[in-house]
Design a protein around this nucleic acid. Structure first.
Length: 686
DNA sequence: AGGCCTCGAGTTCC
DNA sequence: CTCGAGGCCT
């Protein structure tokens, strides 16, 4: 029997009545399709058809247990729960690799290698990704998967064969007619980001605990006592090393070993290359760093290995790590620290947000001391208490986030967070409406200085009235000293008053006054947005301004007229009407108009333009246009600019260093244009 | 009624 | 960026 018969193309189906031949054929077919799907990423038949074949084999094997074989794909769904995991001693220990972070560490590694080999030439290195998963040893005896074990302490691990058999990309039989007598394939079991997101969604829906990250999810799934659960967890595997090998010659290089694995049907990650010298290593690292956000799995760095096996042998080992390999790691994006306190912040709408005060810790290159906990439910769900050790991450590489607590390190005196009953700023009761996630201070603008400050900061912010120089510091002082209570008060400030404030020299005071003066020329949309009406953000403000055209038309609008505006439903309409019904707000609007704030009023109704109905998403840095400029041009042509890509997106405009949005666009088949393409669209339809 | 999609609001650090 | 929630489509 040649390789073609074993795993290659399809073969004619035997008569369903011929059980031995039929089950044999079914096994071959299922293995072939699974390999195409999971390893080659080229599905050969629809899922439903696969399931049909699968169930036929399952029934056949149930009725005729003597037909069952160890490499049957039905073994993947998992048998009865295991009592516990048996210990497995590794014939060849599974070592760890030394780490480097800085360029100098990498150059030093290359120098040590060249000295060790007494080589005057540049060395060839095999470069791979360092996956954030679990190291596993797969033992194949005569080509059949015999045993799978975790790394454990390196010399002894746990037998996870039953669970590993459920990982569909791992071949149960090697794709060769002449397998080695025994081979220990080493690699990493991991969970892709998308599978992780789906798993956590399922956990959430089932009211079960979510996993902190794909690595934990993979580890938890592999350590399931019940393989049937593991079978539902979409784990993946990539091979990158070898342990014991009997009955076959070892390839001459690491890259050749990986090619061999591929030929055997063992999944190997495609993101790898052989480079020359230290400069080659650093170039590989830089390239992977750029593409990292778009990769479907988490990595914590890359791994370099001297490619030639004979050179690896010459270099040998120092204590427990090979001298021929180095892991080049990214700065940690996750770190562990302790929660020193949980305090609350009051936002401009009165929203009470719990914030964790953390012992300072470096995450992804910056020191983090605060992290939002979003709301009360989130604190409960993640079960975070004061005194806990927690894992902190920078979500999307920017905003710190508490991922999970470390339960085994919880001190006995850890305290639970209690939502205060009164606002820490104004003392008004804190209320949380039924069915809502956020608690709010009931004090409102008049009672609560925190809400007043928040509202004033919103008014001066860049996307609203855009008053430069009026930051948190200054607004704070103005409110504390009673100089400013409403946005209209800003325009009554004089030079002398301003110059008396702390850290405010005459020059800065003049700048602030100039900025205030400049801000008076604005747009209706900005003005509406600046008012800070609940549920009316930038987008809704633009819709309102476009629909009504004139402020007085908006002020006079009935609920029915409001509901005619795009994207405005009963909740938003009532919020606007409620705001306008308050005499204090009416007076504010009049005072602002009297202060000289003005804009160009237009005729009501939508101006029909050629990009009407088209939605754009901007990503990356465009060569000449700034983001807001591009947005303004698209909107002037009647198009909309959204924040995230969906199948309703008409175009994605991609610039330099476009990230996940570009990947998403390609996934959904949304057309992608560059700046030049955008300009063309702006000039003429299609 | 349920599911998708968007929008609003809050947030961190330098 | 993330979560929650409003709006709208099916």
């Amino acid at each position: 029997m040649g390789q073609q018969d074993l795993f290659g193309g399809p073969s004619p189906a035997p008569d369903p009545g011929d059980f031995p031949a039929r089950s044999d054929w079914l096994r071959r077919e299922l293995n072939r399709h699974a390999h195409a799907y999971y390893v080659l990423d080229q599905p050969t038949i629809p899922d439903a058809e696969y399931d049909l074949l699968f169930r036929e084999l399952q029934q056949l094997e149930e009725a005729h247990p003597e037909l069952q074989t160890p490499d049957s794909p039905t073994g993947r769904v998992g048998g009865a729960p295991l009592p516990e995991f048996a210990q497995v001693r590794h014939d060849v220990p599974m070592l760890s690799i030394n780490n480097g972070f800085a360029d100098d560490d990498i150059r030093a590694f290359d120098r040590r290698v060249r000295e060790g080999l007494e080589s005057l030439h540049d060395i060839d290195y095999a470069c791979e990704l360092k996956f954030d998963g679990l190291a596993i040893n797969l033992r194949y005896v005569d080509g059949v998967l015999q045993q799978a074990a975790t790394r454990g302490d390196g010399s002894t691990g746990e037998d996870v064969t039953a669970n590993i058999r459920t990982v569909r990309s791992i071949p149960l039989r090697l794709q060769t007619a002449t397998p080695p007598a025994l081979i220990d394939v080493r690699g990493e079991v991991l969970m892709f980001k998308a599978d992780f997101a789906r798993l956590n969604q399922r956990q959430r829906d089932a009211g079960q605990k979510e996993f902190a990250n794909p690595r934990n999810a993979a580890a938890g799934s592999l350590r399931q006592l019940d393989p049937r659960i593991t079978a539902q967890r979409s784990l993946r595997f990539f091979a990158y090393g070898i342990g014991r090998l009997d009955g076959a010659p070892l390839p001459a290089s690491h890259s050749a070993l990986l090619e061999w694995y591929r030929a055997l049907g063992v999944p190997v990650c495609a993101e790898r290359s052989v480079v020359r010298g230290a400069d080659g290593l650093l170039a590989f690292f830089a390239d992977v760093g750029v593409r990292r956000p778009g990769l479907p799995y988490d990595i914590d760095g890359v791994v370099y290995k001297v490619d030639r096996i004979d050179q690896q042998r010459t270099l040998g080992f120092v204590s427990r790590a090979p001298r021929f390999a180095l892991a080049h790691k990214f700065p940690a994006e996750e770190a562990t620290t302790t929660v020193q306190d949980i305090v609350v912040q009051i936002g401009r709408t009165g929203a009470v947000t719990p914030v964790a005060r953390l012992a300072p810790v470096s995450v992804g290159g910056v020191t983090v001391t605060n992290a939002t906990l979003h709301n009360e439910d989130e604190v409960r769900r993640k079960d975070i208490r004061i005194g806990d050790s927690v894992i902190v991450r920078r979500a999307g590489d920017v905003i710190p986030e508490v991922v999970a607590n470390v339960p085994e390190r919880r001190p006995a005196d850890a305290r639970e967070f209690v939502m205060p009953v009164a606002c820490p700023v104004c003392g008004s009761p804190i209320v949380r409406p039924e069915e809502e996630a956020v608690a709010r201070c009931s004090g409102g603008w008049l009672q609560c200085a925190a809400q007043r400050k928040g509202g004033l900061l919103h008014f001066v912010s860049r996307r609203a009235m855009d008053i430069e120089g009026l930051g948190e510091q200054l607004v704070d002082q103005l409110v504390e000293r009673g100089l400013v209570a409403t946005p209209a008060d800003f325009y009554k400030l004089g030079l002398v008053t301003l110059a008396e404030l702390d850290r405010m020299a005459q020059k800065s005071a003049q700048n602030v006054l100039a900025a205030l003066q400049q801000s008076k020329a604005t747009t209706l949309a900005r003005f509406i947005y600046a008012l800070g009406i609940r549920h009316v953000g930038e987008s809704t403000a633009k819709s309102l301004a476009g629909h009504f055209g004139k402020l007085d038309a908006l002020l006079a609008a009935s609920e029915e007229q409001m509901l005619e505006v795009d994207d405005i439903g009963p909740v938003v309409a009532r919020s606007i009407l409620g705001f306008l019904a308050d005499p204090l707000n009416r007076e504010l609007i009049e005072q602002l108009r009297a202060a000289g704030i003005h804009w160009e009023e237009s005729e009501p109704g939508p101006r029909v333009t050629h990009l009407a109905g088209k939605t754009f998403v901007l990503t990356g840095t465009l060569p000449t246009l700034r983001r807001d400029e591009a947005q303004a041009m698209i909107e002037a042509a009647g198009g909309k600019v959204a924040g995230s890509v969906s199948k309703k997106t008409s175009y994605v405009v991609a610039g330099e260093e476009a990230g996940s949005k570009l990947a998403k666009a390609e996934e959904l088949g949304v057309p992608v244009v560059d700046e030049a393409g955008l300009m063309k669209l702006l000039e003429s339809p299609e």
